[in-house]
């Protein structure tokens, strides 16, 4: 059986992403796959609000996740640290504002589920694609996964039975340090590295500025902790496409950044067990 983890990173008012995620989850279980966990991260934590409402005429995606969770015995895990930032107190009312059926957790639970999963499906707001594009992409991903399921379910099951944290995670960052998504991604990378999970991190385009040594006039540095990766955990797997590094000019980076060719990046993408995009 193929085991899948779904990460919902887009908020509940991002209907396209929300519909795509539910549809993918349903298609997977219909084909005999198991959804081990749905993890709500970033603005996606708002799915767990007791006070969430959908306008009439729009499908209640929260209700759909709750029904899915009940029938499939799939935990709906919400990152409690991010949820706090979105005003969700991780208890059901009256003491909190968490909707019954969601469980307050964090990156540790997510990493644990990921270690048992064959595939991660990630649903983001727009990200670098237009919405239509990303929805189509997810559909393709599900279709490929289903095909893989029918062909090699046995091999995949064998793979999954190996050690807990042997998953190699490839993180890809696309945004400037000023966007919350960059911090969410960094927190996840830090968690993975602190759990000794072999990781690689690719910084594309605007994300390269996350690694540039900040100057005094930049003032607040939202990603100061990025230096922990190398200084505390000896993590050195920072990569950037050669073309982006040339475009960025002569910069001083705060981590040991390596230049990677398009072929090398394609190879990393193909060989990583899970590919996570922020």
């Amino acid at each position: 059986m193929v085991n899948v983890v779904i990460m919902q990173h887009a908020g509940p008012d991002d209907y396209a992403s929300g519909h795509a995620a539910i549809a993918a989850a349903q298609a997977l279980v219909d084909s005999g796959a198991k959804v081990l966990q749905v993890f709500f991260y970033g603005p996606g934590v708002l799915y767990s609000s007791h006070y969430l409402q959908f306008p009439s005429g729009v499908k209640n995606l929260q209700q759909q996740w709750l029904e899915f969770a009940t029938t499939q015995h799939t935990p709906l895990v919400v990152c409690s640290t991010v949820a706090n930032q979105y005003g969700i107190e991780p208890n059901v009312p009256p003491s909190g504002s968490l909707a019954a059926g969601f469980s307050s957790g964090g990156l540790t639970e997510f990493m644990e589920a990921l270690s048992k999963a064959d595939t991660l499906l990630q649903f983001q707001p727009g990200l670098q694609h237009s919405c239509q594009h990303s929805c189509r992409q997810e559909t393709v991903a599900v279709r490929e996964l289903l095909q893989r399921n029918s062909k090699t379910a046995k091999d995949i099951t064998n793979d999954a039975s190996s050690d807990a944290y042997d998953a190699a995670l490839l993180f890809e960052f696309n945004h400037s340090p000023w966007q919350a998504i960059s911090r969410h991604g960094l927190d996840m990378l830090l968690m993975a590295v602190s759990l000794d999970i072999p990781c690689q991190a690719i910084y594309n385009n605007a994300a390269l500025s996350q690694l540039v040594v900040p100057t005094e006039q930049n003032g607040y540095d939202p990603l100061k902790k990025i230096a922990m990766l190398n200084n505390v955990f000896d993590f050195t797997e920072f990569y950037s496409p050669a073309s982006d590094m040339v475009a960025a000019g002569n910069q001083q980076y705060r981590v040991p950044l390596q230049e990677a060719s398009a072929e090398q990046i394609a190879q990393m993408q193909a060989s990583a067990k899970h590919h996570i995009i922020f």
Partner: peptide, 18 residues
């Protein structure tokens, strides 16, 4: 002061060891 983050247990152990 260096990392602008309050270390949780796993990080603390690693950082102190280092």
């Amino acid at each position: 002061q260096e990392y602008d983050t309050s270390p949780a247990m796993r990080v603390l152990v690693k950082a102190v060891a280092k």
